[in-house]
């Protein structure tokens, strides 16, 4: 059943409509919500939404509970390859919880929150941006780690990154839901404007496993991988100091040693290497720059240090 979560009239003969699909079977009151498409340039969740919905359709008798799929919280953004909300220059994930008496997008965000509250678990799928590729990971702020890490471990991701909370992130969908008691897991994987099928299938297995643990799914599930949890580990950031074209020379997802050569920043005009990029620490290369043009400061890589080195 397809339902309208929020609607507002646009200027010329069109409505902004946020929709969800409700898939329901059995008697269990358990409810899982899958949301994606908050940023219009992140598309990994689109294929995953399809995978999840079509699989449940084909095996509906194994479902005991409700699965709500919200494929596009920012439909105008996806339609126009715009990360934020077109016409507003706003990041939708900085407007939550919204307000009933606010502007159009504040009202829309408020309706989305109202609709999602009450879910037992919510999965909020992002796919980095066009600049960086990410291994499948779940990001959790320190204050919610105790509540969320056990669920995140069920999700078949490679990494659970527990990070410090920042005030500015208090206006995200996940923070709002978590503060209201709806356990929300933020997934980051792949790269913007692309679909990485391998990652989508990996996370799909994780969602089924989560549903199994929530006793919403009676079918078979695959054995999920044990993720690295970043607690007691540090993350090394590699930023460019020069401007030019970044060309990596190590495989994404590999393990590197401190000072390893991981890429170069090149100047196409002078034909010179303007910066030799080295790993800042030992560890797992879990983020790697995808978009080649860089300025001083552009993030090139993130490296998760081993436990003993971080301590």
């Amino acid at each position: 059943m397809i339902e309208t979560v929020a609607s507002a009239a646009l200027a010329v003969n069109e409505n902004l409509i946020i929709r969800k699909r409700r898939i329901r079977h059995g008697d269990s009151p358990m409810r899982l919500s899958f949301v994606t498409g908050t940023h219009g340039d992140e598309l990994e969740g689109q294929f995953l939404a399809y995978l999840l919905g079509s699989f449940l359709d084909a095996h509906i008798e194994q479902l005991d509970g409700t699965v709500d799929i919200y494929p596009a919280l920012n439909p105008m953004g996806i339609d126009s390859i715009t990360r934020g909300i077109p016409m507003f220059d706003l990041d939708m994930n900085r407007i939550f919880p919204g307000t009933k008496k606010g502007t159009m997008m504040e009202v829309v965000c408020s309706s989305i929150i109202d609709d999602l509250l009450g879910s037992d678990v919510c999965i909020d799928v992002h796919s980095s941006n066009i600049f960086l590729q990410e291994i499948p990971q779940i990001r959790i702020s320190v204050p919610t780690a105790e509540m969320l890490v056990p669920y995140a471990k069920m999700m078949n991701v490679d990494l659970i990154w527990v990070h410090e909370s920042a005030t500015v992130l208090e206006s995200t969908l996940a923070h709002t839901l978590n503060m209201h008691g709806t356990k929300t897991l933020v997934v980051e994987m792949g790269v913007g404007m692309r679909i990485t099928k391998e990652y989508c299938y990996q996370l799909f297995e994780g969602i089924l496993n989560l549903m199994k643990q929530l006793e919403m799914w009676h079918g078979e599930v695959s054995l999920v991988r044990e993720p690295i949890v970043s607690i007691n580990r540090q993350v090394g950031f590699v930023n460019s100091d020069a401007a030019g074209i970044f060309v990596p020379c190590v495989p994404f997802g590999s393990t590197v040693k401190k000072s390893d050569h991981i890429g170069d920043v090149l100047d196409p005009l002078s034909s010179k290497v303007v910066e030799t990029v080295q790993a800042v620490c030992d560890g797992l290369l879990f983020t790697l720059r995808e978009y080649p043009v860089v300025y001083g400061g552009s993030l090139l890589a993130r490296i998760l240090m081993p436990e003993e080195e971080s301590a």
Binding site: A8, A9, A11, T103, M104
Partner: peptide, 8 residues
């Protein structure tokens, strides 16, 4: 000149 619903 163009305005959406619920715009300040």
């Amino acid at each position: 000149p163009l305005i959406n619903e619920k715009t300040v």
